[in-house]
């Protein structure tokens, strides 16, 4: 789990970071809401949870939260705001703007952890994109990420199975034609391990497999190349309630 801590006070920042790191979270830090937006928008790290202070120079926690909820790519990320003790108005405002929870300062390590663990349950799973061709895999990933979903990429069926074991994945999107394990073989392996894991297959023009073959093999969906961006999204979105 990747957590972004947005906090200008060094004591609170250090404390939050250490408590989370000790509990195996991967933690990133910035000091203002503005820097948080910059960090999140580069998309280099796909952050799962944001913990933000409220009062900060240059874009406060409320503004950061509102910005994230209005941005399709950032909307999925659960946000926890830090408020001062007994500041009931801030708590109300935070929850109204869409924060999943709040923590009060002074920080209590156990309360903080319990709240982060709760927020973790609200983190949507990723789309696992499987394709041996870098270009197409990158394109599919970009289309999906632009829609605000988290993506994991695998360049082979073997790598895909490893990632499935270790990560929270909601749906698999795989090309069919790949060396070694092809998409249909991957489909069988995935369903053997986890019959309810949705698998959507992508097939090329004039492929040796027909749509009927693919669905009969147990795929949950089917996309043929060339595809439109919207088609990818409409096949994937239904798996994210």
């Amino acid at each position: 789990m990747k957590v972004l801590v947005v906090e200008d006070d060094q004591v609170s920042q250090k404390l939050t970071v250490k408590v989370l790191e000790k509990n195996n979270y991967e933690v990133f830090t910035v000091e203002t809401g503005k820097d948080a937006v910059k960090f999140l928008e580069t998309g280099e790290e796909q952050i799962d949870i944001v913990i933000s202070d409220i009062m900060m120079p240059v874009m406060d926690g409320f503004n950061l939260l509102s910005y994230m909820k209005a941005d399709i790519r950032l909307r999925r990320i659960p946000v926890i705001l830090c408020t001062a003790l007994n500041d009931i108005n801030s708590v109300k405002r935070a929850l109204t703007l869409g924060a999943v929870d709040y923590v009060t300062k002074p920080i209590d390590a156990n309360t903080l952890l319990a709240k982060v663990r709760n927020a973790e349950k609200r983190v949507p799973g990723a789309v696992l994109v499987v394709d041996d061709e870098d270009l197409l895999r990158g394109l599919l990933s970009k289309i999906i990420m632009r829609d605000g979903l988290k993506v994991l990429q695998a360049s082979s069926g073997k790598e895909a199975l490893e990632l499935l074991d270790k990560n929270n994945i909601t749906v698999v999107l795989s090309d069919i034609v790949m060396p070694e394990m092809n998409g249909l073989e991957l489909l069988v392996e995935v369903k053997e391990k986890n019959p309810t894991m949705p698998v959507v297959l992508v097939t090329g023009h004039g492929s040796e497999y027909s749509k009927d073959d693919i669905l009969a093999a147990g795929a949950d969906g089917f996309i043929s190349k060339p595809f439109k961006n919207a088609e990818i999204i409409s096949r994937i979105r239904p798996y994210f309630k």
Partner: peptide, 17 residues
């Protein structure tokens, strides 16, 4: 309570403070 009993971290944040 803030550090979940971590004395070393306690000293560290007192230093930062």
């Amino acid at each position: 309570a803030a550090t979940d009993g971590d004395k070393e971290l306690a000293v560290e944040i007192i230093g930062i403070f």
